[in-house]
Design a protein around this nucleic acid. Structure first.
Lengths: 244, 244
DNA sequence: CGGGCGCTTGAGGCAGCTCAAGTCGTGTGG
DNA sequence: CCACACGACTTGAGCTGCCTCAAGCGCCCG
């Protein structure tokens, strides 16, 4: 058996299913604008693809910036610490998204990144990325595009939080999750929240009780179905309408 | 054209005071990491340096993205329109800052940019920037850095707005202005707000009355002096402390 | 000099927070 | 495998900070 395997290897290239070529979120991640035959170059960027369990940290605030992380699967939250010790969540991140972009500016991480569930990430040492730019200019363009999108997202979020009532904020949050998670699992409109009500509240500037209450209201209005962490969107149009 | 320019340079270099070489915010803008003799390359990026009066627009939401704008002097606000027609301000921008970065992602502006006072900007067509990357890699690195900083800023803002009481938000806002404006005018801790209380409130998610009231409280606590648009910081440490 | 906009200050109402109690679901140890 | 314990969530009651509405002032510009 070991023998037959060896022979296979010689004849057929190793199908490394962890490679970008087989990644389920390839279309959303760095390789998106890279030609098929260049995808192995992206692969070589990757220093490791650790499997993390819930609660593992990718980096801490004030750590020296060394790598970006692409999420293959799972969920991550990033948060900062306010002076009085509380944590303030700045974002939730899912498969296909890139973490650490805000650290490029001053070469230091400004937030902590921790997994919310079993998660696989691809570690991309930034100096590899910088050197590969000379080979494939598309990669730099892609990173620039992703950063721009993150700015865009943050600013939408700013608009939302500043001017919306609690129910709208929750609706907006769920809709954002819908858009991002649905890109990946082609599932209909059912998904599982990887974070607690308290974390949602922290992120949205609401108390956990208010999050819970407003999710109940959304249910009473026939917009969503809630069963613990499981969310089913019953009326996506109405949900989107709330996000104005 | 290129020829005559070259000759001019040989005889007596034209002192074009609008050039980057003489710009008062050179240290904060794109040229920061560019060698002296390469600064004219940056200059050639610039398509125009219009003098705008209060209320002029740089671009509107949904416009095709064509140029970034570097602010030489003045102040600009960017805002989006919510579905119900209100405007939501996403940022204020001052000399040395770069506008339009959030449009790179999908080649379309997502917000409107309008001047708050007399303003001079340098228009940087993005295709010029992309082509110049091949000549001076430092420019791309600088843009990446600026984008990263903008992400960082937005996320700090998100933290602030989500979890802070009104007085803290106002304090935080003033402190951010202090840091950014003081980099430019070496003046002590006095500056003029280019925006109305209503615009501050809109940005911070507060009513204009609350902004006014909380600025009065900050005055009563001996932290600031207010005279219409003129702000004097009396106790910067206390102010910073409020921003936790 | 007049008008209007920007700003301040007051009064009352309500959305969301805090505190509290109780249920449910999950993970852990016997 | 079951029982227990703890964390997560929901729901209720009362309180408070911010919003809304309103009135009046002062600065700026035509």
């Amino acid at each position: 058996m070991a023998l037959s395997k060896k022979i296979d290897h010689r004849v057929v290239p190793i199908k490394d299913f962890s490679s970008c070529a087989y990644c389920s979120v390839r279309q959303l991640c760095l390789p998106v604008s890279v030609a098929k035959k260049e995808i192995n170059i992206i692969d070589e960027l990757v220093a490791s693809r650790p499997l993390l369990k819930k609660g593992d940290y990718l980096f801490h605030s004030a750590d020296k910036f060394q790598s970006l992380f692409a999420i293959k699967s799972g969920a991550i939250k990033t948060y900062g610490n306010t002076r009085d010790g509380r944590e303030q969540i700045t974002g939730f991140h899912f498969a296909g998204e890139l973490i650490g972009l805000d650290a490029i500016g001053n070469n230091t991480h400004n937030c902590n990144a921790v997994t919310l569930e079993k998660t696989v990430v691809c570690e991309l040492p930034y100096k590899n990325i910088e050197s590969i730019n000379l080979l494939i200019p598309g990669v730099q363009r892609e990173i620039t595009r992703l950063m721009s999108l993150e700015i865009h997202n943050d600013e939408e979020m700013l608009m939302a939080i500043g001017s919306m009532r609690a129910e709208q904020r929750v609706a907006c949050f769920l809709f954002s999750l819908y858009r991002r998670l649905m890109l990946r699992n082609k599932q209909k409109s059912i998904f599982r929240l990887p974070m607690t009500r308290e974390e949602i509240g922290n992120y949205l500037g609401l108390s956990l009780e208010t999050v819970s209450r407003r999710m109940s209201s959304l249910h009473e209005e026939g917009i969503i179905e809630v069963e613990n962490r499981l969310i089913k969107l019953e009326n996506i149009d109405k949900l989107q309408a709330l996000c104005s």
